[in-house]
Each structure stands twice: as C-alpha cells, then as structure tokens.
C-alpha cells in the first residue's frame, strides 16, 4: 500500500501543528515556572497561611486530571463569567495554556522546592551571616545553585508538557494531534497518519532529551 506517500503528504500540515504544540508548550512552561517559583516559596515560607496556600495549590492541580481541568476552564467557567465574549476566539488558546500552566505548575512547584531544599543549609547561614536579607539569599545564593540541579527535572517536565498539549485537541486547538485527526477524518488513513504523528512527537522529544543531557554535561551537575 502507499504508506510513505501519505505520511509525507501530511507532513506540512503536521509540522504546522508541531510548531503550535511547541509554542503552546513554551508558553505553558513559562507561566508554570512562575507559578512554581511563587508556590514553592510559599511552601517554604515560615508563614503558615502561605504554606497552606502552596500546599493547597499543589494538591488541587496535581490531583485533577488535566483533561478535566481543561474542560472545566474551557466549558464550565464561561457559564459563570462571559469569558468567551470578553476574549473571543483567543479564549480557546488562553484556556488551554492556563490549564496546562496550572497543572505543570503544581509539578514544577515540587521540583523547585526540592531543588531549594537540596542546597546545604550552611549556604543560607553564610549568606545571612554577611547581612543578606532573605530575598538576597534566595536570589544570589540559593536559586543560582538550585537552578542547576533543577534543569534535568524541568526539561522532563517540559517534555511532559509537550505530550500533554495533545489533550488540547479536545477543545479544538489545532495542535499536532488535532491536525492529524483532521487529516484522518478526510482520508481515513489512520495507520499512516498516526505513524506520522508519532514520528513528529518523537523527533521533538528526543531532541529535547539530547539537549538536556548536553546541558547536564556542560554544567557538570552533581548527581546525588
């Protein structure tokens, strides 16, 4: 059967979908990292209310299946607030990225928290002993060291996010999986198109994995 011609034929469309998949993943991870940093600091705070908020955030958004969260933000919330009216067709992508960011942010919170906790307590004490404030200690001493240890798990999370964007197909976002489904709905070539989709995902993810191990080697991140 004509297997590869159909695969190649679908490629331009799929690559356009892949571009969006990567774009949305970057946006989601960007916001997720901000959320993760804020809630990780909350969780490490000495103020019990902040710790509670951080704890609650992680529990809720790690506990909810991502698809349910996507549907909730996209289909349920607009029944309460006229979000679709305010944002028009942009709401689709906003909802998708928000859902991804909230979900990945919960995992990144734990990654950042673990990264910060892995730094020897003596570093904090030394910073404080020369008169640094809590903020300066975090900014100049702890985070730069923690970051190196956080890179491998953060890249893993980014890979996870790329895989998770396929769920956005359910709210009609034209990312890689959705493009593929659209092609199949016309040519019914399920085997060929799903193979092509799988190849594109693998190429993206394996390149990221390679990049990650390159960074790891360059920074000589200590394994412990």
């Amino acid at each position: 059967m004509n297997f590869w011609p159909i695969v190649l034929d679908a490629m331009p469309q799929l690559l356009e979908g892949a571009r969006l998949t990567i774009l949305y993943s970057i946006a989601a991870v960007f916001f997720a990292t901000i959320l993760g940093l804020v809630f990780a600091l909350f969780k490490l705070s000495s103020v019990s209310i902040l710790r509670g908020i951080g704890q609650g955030y992680v529990h809720i958004f790690r506990g909810l299946p991502l698809l349910v969260l996507i549907f909730y933000i996209y289909f349920a919330l607009p029944s309460v607030f006229p979000l679709q009216v305010w944002f028009g067709n942009k709401y689709m992508i906003m909802a998708g990225i928000t859902a991804l960011a909230l979900n990945e942010g919960a995992y990144i919170t734990e990654i950042i928290r673990a990264g910060i906790l892995s730094i020897d307590r003596g570093q904090t004490e030394a910073a404080m002993s020369i008169g640094m404030t809590n903020f300066q200690t975090m900014r100049f001493i702890i985070l730069p060291q923690a970051l190196k240890r956080m890179v491998p798990p953060l890249v893993n999370q980014f890979i996870q996010t790329i895989k998770d964007t396929s769920l956005l197909s359910a709210i009609s976002v034209a990312e890689l999986t959705r493009r593929g489904q659209m092609i199949i709905s016309v040519n019914f070539a399920g085997l060929q198109i799903w193979t092509a989709i799988a190849i594109v995902y693998l190429v993206i993810i394996l390149s990221l994995t390679a990049l990650s191990s390159y960074i790891e080697r360059r920074w000589q991140v200590d394994q412990r």
């Binding site: 607009p78 679709q84 067709n89 689709m92 709210i171 009609s172 659209m182």
Partner: peptide
C-alpha cells in the same frame, strides 16, 4: 465549513461540546 473562506471552524470530539460552545458564545 473547512472549505468555506473567512469562517473560523472549531472542531470538537462530541456534539454537546459544540452546543456548549454556542451557549458560551464561543
């Protein structure tokens, strides 16, 4: 609709989602 110029098409897996989209003004 995919062949229609100037129309934005949102494609859902289930028709109730398309109806919800109409109700939500999406």
């Amino acid at each position: 609709m995919s062949n229609e110029q100037g129309v934005t098409v949102k494609r859902f897996n289930n028709i109730d989602e398309a109806y919800r989209e109409l109700q939500n003004s999406g």
